[in-house]
Design a protein around this nucleic acid. Sequence first.
DNA 1: CTGTGTGCAAAGGGTTTGCAAGTAC
DNA 2: GTACTTGCAAACCCTTTGCACACAG
Lengths: 136, 136
Amino acid sequence: MSEVKEILKKKNLRVTPMRLQILDLMFHASAAVSQKSIEAKLKDFDRITLYRTLKSFEEKGIIHKIEDGTGLNKYAMCADCDEHHHHDEHVHFNCNKCGDTFCLEDMEPPSFVNKTKHQIEQFNIVLKGTCEMCLN
Amino acid sequence: MSEVKEILKKKNLRVTPMRLQILDLMFHASAAVSQKSIEAKLKDFDRITLYRTLKSFEEKGIIHKIEDGTGLNKYAMCADCDEHHHHDEHVHFNCNKCGDTFCLEDMEPPSFVNKTKHQIEQFNIVLKGTCEMCLN
DNA sequence: CTGTGTGCAAAGGGTTTGCAAGTAC
DNA sequence: GTACTTGCAAACCCTTTGCACACAG
């Protein structure tokens, strides 16, 4: 709990019980979390405020949004992002069976040689398949 | 107009004016089209029916949905899809300036060597940047 | 004390469902 | 004629906005 407290202070966000619990939940999650799953676990907090909380976390570079194609936006802690730039150009993986989404920090993103006439600046890659847990 | 008529017949969908016009629009579009842009061009048709039309086209493998990260879902004709399988594993490109999205049919998708413990089966790649038109 | 954060109510937007009338074949 | 398709109304869900109260610093 004290780690996440430090994160909030470092980003000049006020330390409130709601923020602590949300951030703690994400800090210890093994997969990216959807807003829905946060609501389910933290029932007593207001759903609308949760939108604002996630938005401010995202703006400060504490978390990043993952569009994994399931329709549900998910969020995960940023490894090295800040309010100026999101370094979220790593590969994401979404399991077709359990629906969980992970950041594949260890996987090298492919270099896109610019064969098209368009100028490539960023990219978003989501791999899909069966995750380690569901394979066994 | 006769090409799209053949497509509908081949997929066992009834040939109606609405379907012809929607499909014709997508057939001749240079970029993927959003539902909003279809509504703008085909004002006289019912918005709700358009949802169902796009859904049935997608289910029959005539078009595929592209989630380009703009929030607006877009659709493009499938090169070689059918009701059993979508071969939409080509790379997509989204322009930050004009917002247009293209299928990069010519770009070879990278082969993902399975370095993770998860089993990779499909992928979704969206490149972002500035398109040819906006560069000039 | 001051400004930020929270909760509630309401509004907004996109999407889906139900049903009767219309139309392709 | 029959089954599919359409249009309209209403419902549903997710997300945003406005505002008064509560609370962190």
